Amino acid sequence: MFDAPFSSYQRSRGRARVALGATGALTGLFQQGSAKAMLPRTHGPLPEVVFLNTSGGLTGGDRFQFSLDVAAGAGAMAATQTAERAYASPDGVAEVSVSLSAGEGATLFWLPQETILFDRSGLDRRTEVTLGEGARYLGLETVVLGREAMGERVETLDFQDVRVVRDAAGRVIHAEQIALGSGTLAGRDRAAGLAGASVLASLVYIAPDAGDRIGPVRAALGDAPGCAASAWDGRLTIRAMGRDSWDLRRALIPAIRLLTNDHLPRVWQT
Rank of each mutant, 00 (worst) to 15 (best):
M1G: 12
F2A: 14
F2R: 15
A4L: 13
P5Q: 01
S7W: 08
Y9P: 05
R13T: 14
R13I: 07
G14N: 06
G14V: 10
R17I: 13
V18D: 10
V18A: 07
V18P: 01
L20G: 02
G21D: 15
A22H: 15
L26W: 11
G28Q: 01
G28I: 00
L29H: 14
F30C: 04
G33Y: 03
S34H: 11
S34D: 15
P40F: 12
R41W: 11
T42K: 13
H43F: 15
G44Q: 13
G44E: 08
G44T: 09
G44N: 11
L46Q: 05
S55L: 09
G57L: 13
L58R: 00
L58S: 06
G60Q: 04
R63H: 13
F64W: 00
F66D: 01
S67N: 09
V70H: 10
V70R: 10
A71N: 06
M77F: 02
M77Q: 07
A79I: 04
T80E: 03
T80I: 04
Q81C: 04
Q81L: 10
R85F: 02
Y87L: 09
P90I: 10
D91C: 14
D91L: 15
V93S: 07
A94Q: 05
A94M: 12
E95V: 14
G105R: 09
A106Y: 09
F109G: 04
L111D: 09
P112S: 00
P112E: 05
I116Q: 05
D119L: 10
S121P: 01
S121H: 02
S121M: 12
D124L: 13
T127N: 13
E128C: 15
L131F: 06
L131C: 07
A135H: 08
A135D: 02
R136D: 01
Y137V: 08
Y137P: 05
G139K: 06
G139H: 08
V144C: 14
L145E: 09
E148C: 09
M150W: 08
G151W: 06
E152R: 02
R153G: 14
R153H: 13
R153T: 12
T156Y: 09
L157N: 01
F159T: 07
Q160T: 02
V162D: 14
R166F: 09
D167M: 11
R171T: 15
R171N: 08
E176P: 06
I178P: 00
A179V: 15
L180H: 00
L180D: 02
G181Y: 07
S182K: 04
T184G: 14
L185G: 05
G187W: 13
R190M: 11
G196E: 08
G196D: 08
V199D: 01
L203S: 05
L203H: 03
I206R: 01
A210C: 08
R213C: 02
G215P: 00
G215T: 11
G215S: 09
P216Q: 01
A220S: 09
D223H: 04
P225M: 11
G226E: 07
C227K: 00
S230E: 06
S230M: 05
W232N: 02
W232P: 03
D233E: 15
D233T: 12
D233A: 15
G234A: 06
G234P: 10
G234Q: 04
M241P: 00
S245D: 11
L252F: 05
P254V: 03
I256L: 12
L258T: 02
L259A: 02
L259S: 07
T260G: 03
R266I: 07
W268L: 12
Q269M: 13
T270C: 12
T270G: 14
